[in-house]
């Protein structure tokens, strides 16, 4: 940064050296403040979730409302949830990542293979975790570099990665399922902590870290700025290209974490893991209020989006409705959410 802060006049000393007293926003009504707070913006999502719960309770009764079932819903949500957190960053930053599902599959395959290749039981389960996350992050970095420095449209670059990663996964695994041999690994990811399954804890931690990163750090500010107006961000001196690579790296990393989670749940790695998960993740992010054109979105909204879809699925399953009906309902919800968003955007602009 510049070493020459210019002082325009005596009355306006350099702000950087000033004390940091709080400026209270003037004349804003209680109502408008609540509405623009994140709780207010997510009000619609809270209501949607409550309605789904009510429907579930009415149609399936205790089967739906018992604690075990609630945990099932959240556990079901947690894998897509982790993917969606990474996706939120990419979309707010003005991009899209179609590859996270197949990167997840690739990471699950390489992770299980890495243990088989070495001394099976002796290798610590940590190795599997690290390998999966590394594979995911690397794929993300490749995406980011191709998009940023190769000037390839994000949609195409990540579509290519979607196809390629799936192909690699098939080659490495020989199209066969790799059983997780490490008993320790299986135990760790089967365990509960404070009565809540580890998978859910992972989701909670990733979402919390994502929230902090987006809302409290310079990284989050850069993400919002670049997604909101790329040219303005560039002319303000932000390193737009490099930051874009970081965003895809984050999405890739969450795909790696999701791979670990699915290994824990299924105790097997296969090239078909994560198929179409990218669409569920994107849907959850958009339903959660993140603008597809970038520049605006919230982690809290994404979490709600994920929970809404998971609850919906559960309600349908509890009532023995088939997956086709479920798919139609999902489609309807996505369209409704986008319509609501447009309403919101129209009211807030000009």
């Amino acid at each position: 940064m510049s070493e020459q802060p210019t002082v325009p006049s005596a009355e306006h000393p350099n702000p950087a050296t000033e004390s940091t007293d709080i400026v209270t926003p003037s004349s804003r009504s209680w109502f408008s403040r609540v509405m623009s707070s994140s709780a207010g913006r997510n009000l619609g999502l809270v209501i949607a979730l409550l309605v789904l719960f009510a429907i579930g309770a009415l149609t399936a009764g205790e089967r739906f409302t018992n604690f075990e079932n609630i945990l099932t819903i959240i556990r079901f949500a947690s894998i897509i949830g982790v993917l969606s957190i990474g996706m939120t960053f990419v979309i707010i930053g003005g991009g899209i990542d179609l590859s996270v599902g197949s990167v997840m599959g690739l990471a699950s395959v390489i992770s299980t293979l890495s243990v088989i290749q070495t001394f099976a039981e002796q290798t610590s389960w940590i190795v599997m975790v690290i390998v999966a996350i590394l594979v995911g992050t690397l794929a993300g970095i490749v995406n980011g570099i191709v998009i940023s420095y190769g000037n390839v449209v994000a949609f195409m670059a990540t579509l290519a990665m979607l196809v390629a990663a799936r192909g690699f996964a098939e080659i490495f695994s020989n199209r066969s399922t790799q059983i997780v041999r490490s008993q320790e690994f299986i135990e760790v990811f089967r365990a509960d902590f404070l009565g809540i399954p580890i998978l859910i804890w992972i989701f909670i931690v990733v979402a919390a870290l994502g929230w902090i990163l987006l809302n409290r750090t310079t990284f989050g500010r850069r993400t919002i700025a670049i997604g909101g107006n790329r040219e303005a961000a560039r002319l303000a001196g932000l390193k737009v290209k490099r930051h874009t690579v970081y965003l895809y790296a984050i999405a890739g990393m969450t795909a790696g974490i999701a791979a670990v989670m699915i290994l824990g749940r299924t105790t097997a790695g296969t090239s078909t893991h994560g198929t179409l998960y990218e669409l569920d993740a994107i849907a959850a992010v958009v339903v959660g209020g993140t603008l597809l054109i970038g520049g605006r979105g919230t982690i809290v909204g994404t979490v709600f989006g994920v929970l809404i879809f998971a609850t919906l699925t559960n309600v349908f399953t509890q009532n023995n409705l088939n997956t086709s009906v479920q798919a139609v309902a999902k489609g309807v919800i996505i369209v409704l959410a986008v319509l609501l968003q447009q309403r919101f955007a129209a009211r807030n602009k000009r």
Binding site: I224, A225, N229, A232, L238, G295
Partner: peptide, 18 residues
């Protein structure tokens, strides 16, 4: 098109470079 994040508050626009 080159200067502002229209959706964002004034203060983040003012501090965009700093």
């Amino acid at each position: 098109s080159q200067g502002l994040l229209l959706d964002q508050p004034i203060f983040t626009n003012v501090t965009l470079s700093s």
